[in-house]
C-alpha cells in the first residue's frame, strides 16, 4: 500500500515536471540576469571565465555560505565520529602497486590541483575543482600507508585560516569604502594570470579550504572504518 502511494507520488511528480518543462521556454528563456552578466562581466570583474565572475563576484556571498556549509559538515562529522582511540588497530599497508603509484601521482596531482586553482579565472576550473584534486593528492598517500596520519589539528587550522582569509579579503573592501566582498586591486589585462583583482586570491583561499576540508573528511571517515 505504502509502496503504491509512493510510486503514484513519484509518477505524478515526474509527469508534472515533464509537462512543465516541455511548456517552458527551453533554451529561449528570458535569461535577463545572464545577458547582463555576459555583457558587463568581463569589464566589471576582469576575469575571462565568466562563471568565475559569477561564483566569486556577483554571487561571491553564496560562495561564502557554501564554504561555511563544508566547514559545518566537517565540524559535525567530527562531533559524530569523535576522537580516535590511540590503541585502535590500523589498516595494513597497501601493496606495492598502490604505494608506488601514490608516490608517483602525489606531485603530479599537487601540480595539477594548484594549476587549476590559479587559472580559475581564465580557464574552466577553479578553487572547488582544484581543491578536490588537492584533497585527492593528500588522501592517496593515506590510503597507501595507513600508518602515516595527517594531523587533524593541522587541517583544522588550515581550514580556519583559509576561511578567515576569504572573509578578511571581503572585509578589507569594506575598509576601503566599498561593500563586503567588493573586488579590490587592479583588474589587469584580460586573460593574463595576474588579472581579475582580488578574485584569484579568493579562489586560492577557496582551493586551500576545500582541499583541507575534503582531505579532513576523508581521513576522518577512513579512521572510523579502521576502528570498527
Amino acid at each position: 500500500m505504502r509502496n503504491l502511494i509512493s510510486l503514484l507520488f513519484v509518477g505524478g511528480l515526474v509527469f508534472l515536471l515533464l509537462v512543465l518543462t516541455l511548456q517552458a521556454p527551453f533554451a529561449e528563456g528570458p535569461m535577463l540576469v545572464g545577458k547582463g552578466i555576459l555583457q558587463q562581466g568581463t569589464e566589471e570583474t576582469g576575469t575571462a571565465n565568466l562563471v568565475t565572475s559569477v561564483v566569486l563576484g556577483y554571487r561571491g556571498y553564496d560562495t561564502l555560505g557554501e564554504l561555511s556549509i563544508l566547514f559545518t559538515a566537517a565540524l559535525a562529522l567530527g562531533v559524530v565520529l569523535g576522537r580516535r582511540r590511540p590503541e585502535a588497530p590500523r589498516d595494513l599497508e597497501a601493496g606495492l602497486v598502490l604505494r608506488a603509484s601514490s608516490d608517483l601521482l602525489f606531485p603530479l596531482l599537487l601540480v595539477v590541483g594548484l594549476y587549476i586553482i590559479l587559472h580559475g579565472h581564465l580557464t574552466p576550473g577553479g578553487g572547488f575543482q582544484g581543491g578536490v584534486i588537492l584533497a585527492a593528492a593528500f588522501f592517496l598517500p593515506v590510503l597507501a600507508r595507513p600508518s602515516q596520519r595527517i594531523s587533524h589539528a593541522g587541517l583544522m587550522a588550515l581550514e580556519a585560516l583559509a576561511g578567515a582569509a576569504f572573509i578578511i579579503i571581503g572585509l578589507l573592501a569594506m575598509r576601503h569604502g566599498g561593500q563586503f566582498l567588493q573586488p579590490l586591486l587592479d583588474k589587469g589585462q584580460l586573460g593574463s594570470l595576474l588579472s581579475g583583482g582580488t578574485l584569484p586570491l579568493l579562489y586560492i583561499a577557496v582551493g586551500v579550504k576545500v582541499g583541507a576540508e575534503l582531505a579532513g573528511l576523508l581521513v576522518r571517515l577512513g579512521d572510523a572504518e579502521a576502528d570498527s
Binding site: 589539528a153 578567515a164 572585509l171 569594506m174
Partner: peptide, 16 residues
C-alpha cells in the same frame, strides 16, 4: 553584512 559575516568568522576561528 557584518551581521552575517562576523558570526561566520567567529565560527571558523572557534575550533582552532
Amino acid at each position: 553584512a557584518l551581521l552575517v559575516v562576523l558570526p561566520l568568522l567567529a565560527a571558523f576561528l572557534t575550533p582552532s
